[in-house]
Computed example of a mutant assay.
Amino acid sequence: MDTQQFAGGNERFIRRYEYDDSWVIAADTGLDDESLDVDIVGTTAIVVAETGDRITETELELPGEDASAETKNGVLTITVQK
C-alpha cells in the first residue's frame, strides 16, 4: 500500500491510498453528510459543499473511471477500481 497525504490551509486532510486493485481517496471535510454532494463524471469527482448560505464546488481528477463515492461522519471516501 502506498499513501500520500495533503493538508490545506484550513488543516483539512486529504489522503490517497493505493492498493493492488484500487485507489482510495479520503477527505476529512468537517461537514455533516447532508451538506455534501458528490457527482462522478468520467475521471472527475465534483464535490459540492453547502455551509450556511455559502456553496463551494471542488473538482478532483481521479486516476480512473470506475469510481464510487460515499460520505460518513464528515469523511468523503472515493474508491477508484484499477
Rank of each mutant, 00 (worst) to 15 (best):
M1P: 12
M1K: 14
D2Y: 12
D2Q: 15
T3K: 13
T3V: 12
T3P: 05
T3H: 12
Q4E: 13
Q5P: 14
F6M: 11
F6A: 12
A7H: 15
G9K: 05
G9H: 04
N10E: 07
N10T: 06
E11L: 14
E11V: 14
R12Q: 13
F13Y: 13
I14L: 14
R16F: 04
E18Y: 01
Y19F: 12
D20C: 07
D21N: 10
D21R: 10
S22D: 12
S22C: 05
W23S: 08
V24R: 10
I25Q: 03
A26C: 04
A26R: 09
A26P: 06
A27H: 15
A27D: 13
D28H: 14
D28R: 13
T29I: 05
G30L: 12
G30C: 10
D32P: 04
D32G: 05
D33K: 03
E34A: 12
E34K: 13
L36T: 11
L36V: 10
V38M: 00
D39T: 07
V41G: 04
T43M: 11
T44W: 10
T44A: 10
A45S: 04
V48L: 06
V48W: 09
V48T: 13
A49N: 05
G52Q: 07
G52R: 04
D53Y: 13
R54M: 09
I55H: 01
I55D: 00
T56G: 08
T56C: 03
T56V: 07
E57I: 02
E57K: 09
E59I: 01
E59T: 09
L60G: 12
L60E: 09
L60T: 11
L60Y: 09
E61L: 00
E61S: 02
E61P: 01
L62I: 02
L62H: 03
P63F: 01
G64R: 01
E65P: 07
E65I: 03
E65V: 06
E65S: 06
E65F: 05
A67T: 00
A67V: 00
S68V: 07
S68I: 04
A69V: 02
E70M: 02
E70A: 03
E70W: 02
T71S: 02
T71P: 00
K72T: 11
N73K: 09
N73P: 04
N73R: 07
G74P: 06
V75A: 00
L76M: 02
T77A: 00
I78N: 05
I78F: 01
T79R: 03
V80Q: 04
Q81H: 10
Q81V: 11
K82C: 03
